[in-house]
């Protein structure tokens, strides 16, 4: 489903932040993306959510070579990807419901059905009383849950999350991870960037471990595969 083949990435004319990255993510797989700060996790995620193209190498997603994909073809692929950004990136002037409904509306949906669907999901993530609230009045944990709901509402083929449980209490963290696992069981390929090794051990999924701009694959116990 996703294939990196000797991919390198740089910003402008700077030195490469990722070098010779090669790995494959089969459809329906679940991976953690781990590594120390500055190792390139965010850059790797940027390529995965199509915010940045590789500087070299070949990146294939959903059977298409992203490296030389036309700009007009990107929206179609992006609609198959759900992203939870580390800094949430919610639209401050929209309510929680409106933020979560955005991916469905962008995809052309409309009407009461969307609202109902969105409200159900917000209830599930514990934001029943905050549906009409706007992000500036939400706590960090609440914003994070809105961001997660927005990422999963359209049942994406690929779910990417950058530290998705960093701002919530352990109980909610477990609940959200359960949501990711359930989505994964329904066929969504999932990549979660995290520093929380307890979480990694608990779920026991394999890791893509970034270090010194290179990637290696580790199993759930942290051993190189």
């Amino acid at each position: 489903m996703i294939s990196f083949n000797n991919v390198g990435m740089r910003y402008g004319m700077e030195a490469e932040v990722l070098r010779d990255i090669s790995f494959e993510l089969p459809q329906g797989s679940f991976h953690f993306l781990t590594g120390p700060s500055g190792a390139g996790k965010s850059s790797l995620l940027k390529m995965l959510y199509l915010a940045h193209r590789p500087s070299r190498g070949r990146l294939e997603m959903f059977g298409q070579n992203v490296t030389d994909l036309k700009r007009d073809d990107l929206p179609r692929l992006r609609r198959r990807i759900g992203v939870v950004f580390q800094e949430f990136r919610l639209l401050d002037h929209l309510t929680a419901v409106e933020n979560v409904a955005l991916p469905l509306r962008i995809a052309g949906g409309s009407g009461r059905e969307i609202d109902q669907h969105v409200e159900e999901l917000l209830v599930w993530v514990g934001l029943k009383d905050r549906m009409k609230s706007r992000p500036p009045v939400l706590s960090g944990g609440e914003k994070q849950r809105v961001a997660i709901a927005r990422a999963v509402i359209a049942k994406p083929d690929l779910l990417l999350a950058d530290e998705p449980t960093g701002n919530v209490d352990p109980a909610m963290s477990e609940r959200l991870m359960h949501l990711f696992v359930e989505l994964n069981k329904l066929g969504t390929t999932t990549v979660i960037a995290t520093h929380d090794m307890n979480l990694v051990r608990k779920i026991g999924a394999p890791q893509l471990h970034l270090r010194d701009r290179f990637v290696s694959r580790l199993d759930g116990a942290g051993d190189i595969i």
Binding site: Y49, A51, L74, P75, R78, R79, R89, L91, P103, I106
Partner: peptide, 13 residues
């Protein structure tokens, strides 16, 4: 700018 970027990333044409 930030809103436009988010809209793009969610698949807006």
């Amino acid at each position: 700018r930030d809103t436009i970027e988010i809209m793009h990333l969610m698949g807006a044409h």
